[in-house]
Design a protein around this nucleic acid. Structure first.
Length: 131
DNA sequence: ATTCTGACAGCAA
DNA sequence: TTTGCTGCCAGAA
């Protein structure tokens, strides 16, 4: 029984349907100028209590060739908790302000106004039949 | 294999 | 109200 030994890939990548990839896909669906929270994404993916994993995934989003708008993901308070992961601690804020969001003291002021909940916004898509 | 860590969130004091 | 502890679960060491 010689299983095919999957180390052919070098021992990395693969797993296109794992939690991480779903986080990336969801994140890329966030419209320009809108934001969401880690918990919202986690809930949308089915694991409402895995918000930390969402952040963990975004942490590795750098390795992806696709540009993932991780700056559009903040915590439930609208706080830019991950700003320190954009090289410059002011990069995240600049990106958000560049999209019309108002950031003050590391917090998105118009958070509720610009909040985009995937489990709510994408619900219609799921119902439409398009997977 | 086991232990530690983490870009969160919820709940108890 | 703010502060602190706990649960979550997947990687990295």
């Amino acid at each position: 029984m010689k299983r095919i030994k999957t180390s052919a890939t070098g021992g990395k990548d693969q797993t296109p349907n794992d939690f991480f990839s779903r986080v990336y896909e969801t994140t890329m669906l966030i419209p320009y100028g809108r934001i969401t929270s880690y918990g919202a994404i986690a809930r949308y993916l089915g694991s409402g209590r895995s918000a930390r994993m969402v952040g963990w995934a975004l942490n590795a989003s750098h390795t992806r060739s696709e540009l993932i708008p991780a700056h559009r993901v903040v915590n439930r308070n609208g706080l830019l908790t991950g700003k320190h992961h954009f090289g410059n601690s002011s990069t995240m804020q600049q990106l958000l302000e560049n999209e019309g969001l108002i950031v003050d003291d590391d917090r998105v002021v118009n958070f509720r106004e610009k909040f985009w909940d995937p489990s709510r916004e994408l619900k219609q898509i799921l119902v439409s039949g398009k997977k």
